[in-house]
Design a protein around this nucleic acid. Structure first.
Lengths: 174, 174
DNA sequence: AAACAGGTGTCTAACAATTAGACAATCTGC
DNA sequence: GCAGATTGTCTAATTGTTAGACACCTGTTT
């Protein structure tokens, strides 16, 4: 597998879109670009997108990154599993933290290093979690809930919305 | 509820530990401090800790933050659900991203604003305490898996480790 | 010391969910 | 148009879940 599927690049600067098209052409099957953030969700509804590279400063006069956070949320709301990598000209720690808390996979500052950017995008797609069985998810959530209840099984069962006996059974089987 | 439990502050600067003791005394039941990172896991094994505030630059000559990442990983490995907030003197975006990717809840730069820091710690603990029923976790995981299979229910059921009929039933009930 | 409250481990019997297996109908790629 | 995969639906056997109950243990209150 030497291709990483379809990537969508959203930036209001046409020059950056062109640069990205060339930079990403080798690694990705298809490189879509748009200068209009409204198109992101539309495009994602029309065809499967494997990754989004999103500029944080769409409204040209605004550099708070709030615009980018808004579109990030819009993407994550509909497609929580599609990784979004953020791109910004302003190296702002608070913005990076906010972006990651809202589900972004990485945060890259302009000007970027081509090799570094490619490596980061590939890393994100490589690490993208494999699908786990329902049982494993259940087991993990039970483990964490019991941990949070400091070992109190009655309380854990109540929080989990199951009976204490069912919790016993699940613990035995898992 | 005007108390947020026990917080552990780890920083090799004694002055900062003292400052934190005073700053956090009102909001937290108990404020533990240590200048030795080895003590963090030891203390957490001895008593329940609700939150860790971790300095990123323990080895005084080193400012890469690698030391902090190491201890963050050590904490998260044993206690994945205990929130860890990072503290650093060097506003480094790459370090902040790495910290959050390794499970940190927030990232604060020195010098900090007292009110801002308190608010961030409280925010972390407020969202932390949300408890999710097993059904909701199940529902969410099913939704995501079906999404990833592009709507192919047979494939989704197989990945989830359940039968197609069971998947139908769960979709109806949830 | 006795009463109490909360948690544990275990059991039963009714009920609900899951399973394998089957079937025709529909969708999809070639 | 055809073959393979997917869907929607069904049955009967198996398994899991539930409410309720019981004795037991541990700390706390009276």
């Amino acid at each position: 597998m030497n291709t990483y599927g379809t990537i969508l690049v959203a930036d209001d600067n046409a020059a950056i879109l062109t640069a990205m098209k060339y930079l990403l052409a080798d690694a990705f099957d298809q490189v879509l670009t748009t200068a209009q953030p409204d198109d992101i969700v539309k495009l994602m509804a029309q065809q499967p997108i494997d990754m989004v590279l999103l500029d944080m400063n769409f409204s040209s006069g605004v550099n708070s990154g709030q615009e980018g956070i808004f579109w990030l949320r819009a993407i994550k709301k509909r497609h929580p599993d599609v990784p979004v990598v953020l791109l910004t000209a302003y190296a702002d720690i608070a913005l990076a933290v906010k972006g990651l808390k809202n589900g972004a996979s990485d945060f890259i500052t302009k000007p970027w290093d081509n090799d570094d950017l490619l490596r980061k995008l590939k890393d994100v797609l490589d690490v993208q979690h494999e699908i786990v069985s329902l049982d494993e998810v259940e087991k993990e959530h039970i483990r964490r809930t019991i941990d949070r209840c400091h070992g109190n099984l009655s309380q854990a069962a109540e929080l989990l919305g199951i009976t204490r006996q069912t919790l016993y059974n699940k613990m035995k089987r898992l």
